[in-house]
Amino acid sequence: MEVIAQLQETSIYNVLFPTIYAFTPLLEPMRTEITGARKTFKYGETECHQLDVYPPPPAYTGTTKHPLLVFIYGGNFTTGKRTRSAPADLVYGNVGCYFAFHGFITIIPDYRLAPETPYPGGAEDLRAVLEWTASAAGNALGPAADREKIFLLGHSAGGVHVMTMLFREPTILASGRVKGAFIASAPTYYDFDVIDEPTARGVEAYYGARTAAVEGSPLTLFRAASEGMIRALPPLALLTCERDPEYMRVNLAESRRMLEERGIKVPLIVAKGHNHVSITFALGTGQGEEWAEDAVRWMRALHQEKTPWLRSAL
C-alpha cells in the first residue's frame, strides 16, 4: 500500500496502470492457486457468456455448506474481462481465490459490454448468471454448494449492474436466494456536471444518451420501486474508497441517505488508503484487505442469519 499512498491522483484513469504495476508482482506467489483453482463454464449463448468458478480449498473447515458469491467487475461499461492479459493476468483471479479461501464458492462472470450491448444488458447477464447457479450441474458448483444463499459483490460499473438488476427484477427478489449485495465504489446516479469526460463517455455508450442514463440510473429505479419491492430487497452495503474521486464519494454518501429515507438502513464502509481500483488488486497480497475482511464478516453473519456488524462502517 506504500505505492498507493504515494499516488496523489484520484482520477481512475490516472491511477489505473500505476496500481496494476504496484500489485501484480505481489500476486505472483499466488499464481498456482489462482490458475489451478478456477473452472470455466458457459452460462449463455455468446462467447461473452462464460464464467469462472473458484471453490474453497479442500482443507477449508469453516462450514459444511458453502454460500455462493458472484463478483461483477467494473470497466466503465465498455471494458473488462474476468481473465486479463499480462501483466494483470492474475487480477480478478485473486478476488476469486481470496473469497474461496474464506469459504465462498466464488463465481466471476464475463458479461456483454457497451456499445455493442446497451442498457440493461449487463444487468440481464447478471440475472442469467443467477439462473445458471440454480440449474448448474453438481460438478460445476460441487455438492457442498448452498445454492439458496447467494451474495453479490459489484465493483464500479459491476455494482451498477447489481443494483439495476435488483431494482428492475422482482422475480429475482421473489426467489429469496440473494441474501445480500455489497456495492463497492459504484455510482447510483450520474451528475454530468461533475463526472469526468472519460466516465461520461462510458455512461453514454451504455445508456445511449445522458437523459436515458438519468432515467435508468439505480437511484431513479429505486425511487420508482413499489413498497413491496423495497421490502423484498436483500440487505445492502455500500463501500467507498478513501481515494475515490470526490464526486463518487459524495454520490455514495447521498445515496445512502436517500436509501434510508425509504427505510433501508445501509452501512457505508470506507476502504482506508485505497484508490478506486486498488481494492480488487490488493486481495491476496496481505496488504489493504481490511475492507474484504469486513465484507466476509458481513456475508457470514447473513449466511448464518445473524445481525451483521462492520467495523469500518459509518
Rank of each mutant, 00 (worst) to 15 (best):
G36A: 13
G75V: 04
T40Q: 12
P25S: 00
Y60A: 11
Y60K: 04
L26T: 05
Q6P: 06
R31Y: 10
C48V: 08
P25M: 04
F23G: 00
L7F: 15
Y13G: 05
V3N: 07
G62D: 15
Y73A: 10
Q50P: 03
Y13M: 05
L16C: 00
I12L: 10
G62H: 14
Q50G: 05
S11K: 11
P58G: 12
F17Q: 14
F17C: 03
N14Q: 10
A37P: 09
Y21G: 15
E33P: 09
I34P: 08
S11A: 12
F41Y: 15
L69P: 02
K39R: 15
N76I: 08
V3E: 12
F17G: 08
F17I: 13
H66C: 09
G36S: 13
T61E: 12
S11E: 12
Y43A: 00
I12M: 09
N76K: 12
I34D: 05
S11T: 08
P25I: 01
L27D: 00
Y73C: 07
L69T: 02
T24W: 09
Y13T: 06
Q8N: 11
V70Y: 10
N76V: 13
P58M: 09
V3H: 06
R31Q: 12
K39W: 00
L27S: 00
P57S: 06
H66A: 06
G62N: 14
N14A: 08
L68W: 01
V3K: 12
Y73P: 02
H66D: 03
G36D: 09
D52I: 10
T63Y: 07
E45T: 02
D52C: 04
V70M: 03
N14W: 03
L27E: 00
Y21H: 15
K39T: 12
S11Y: 07
T46Y: 01
G75Y: 05
P29D: 11
Q50M: 07
T24V: 15
Y13L: 10
L7G: 06
Y21M: 15
Q6E: 15
L7S: 04
I34L: 08
T63A: 10
N14H: 09
G44F: 02
